[in-house]
């Protein structure tokens, strides 16, 4: 799973969001590190919809513009959980090694 796909799915966990809502939430979740361009957002979103991980929730007109809200499907939730667990396991692995391995200069990493 690519990083943008991971953040888009994460942004949709708590509530359905529209296109710009996803962009804004992903920027906030990643502390400004992942700033999705519209082409990248829809390039990823169309794959997620095609794979059945995301689906259309509803359409609204806001200030004369169409807003489509997307929501996470059950399959999307499972895929995100699996990916999150995989990333967490990797992080745990690295943390454990860093803790166990004595640093020749500063000594062991404080736990």
């Amino acid at each position: 799973m690519t990083e943008p796909a991971f953040f888009i799915l994460t942004a949709l966990v708590d509530a359905p969001r529209h296109g710009y809502g996803i962009v804004a939430d992903v920027a906030e979740l990643s502390r400004g590190r992942v700033r999705l361009k519209i082409g990248s957002l829809y390039g990823t979103l169309d794959r997620l919809v095609g794979d059945g991980l995301v689906e259309l929730d509803r359409e609204e007109v806001w200030q004369g513009r169409l807003r489509r809200y997307y929501r996470l499907t059950e399959r999307g939730r499972e895929a995100l959980a699996v990916e999150a667990e995989r990333l967490a396991a990797n992080a745990r692995l690295a943390s454990t090694r860093l803790r166990d391995q004595r640093n020749p200069i500063t000594g062991p990493v404080p736990s």
């Binding site: 296109g19 710009y20 519209i38 513009r65 169409l66 489509r68």
Partner: peptide, 17 residues
């Protein structure tokens, strides 16, 4: 075909950005 389905949504997201 892609524009037919996604264009309005992309335009709305872009203008909002």
């Amino acid at each position: 075909g892609y524009r037919q389905e996604w264009e309005d949504d992309m335009v709305a997201a872009f203008l909002e950005s």
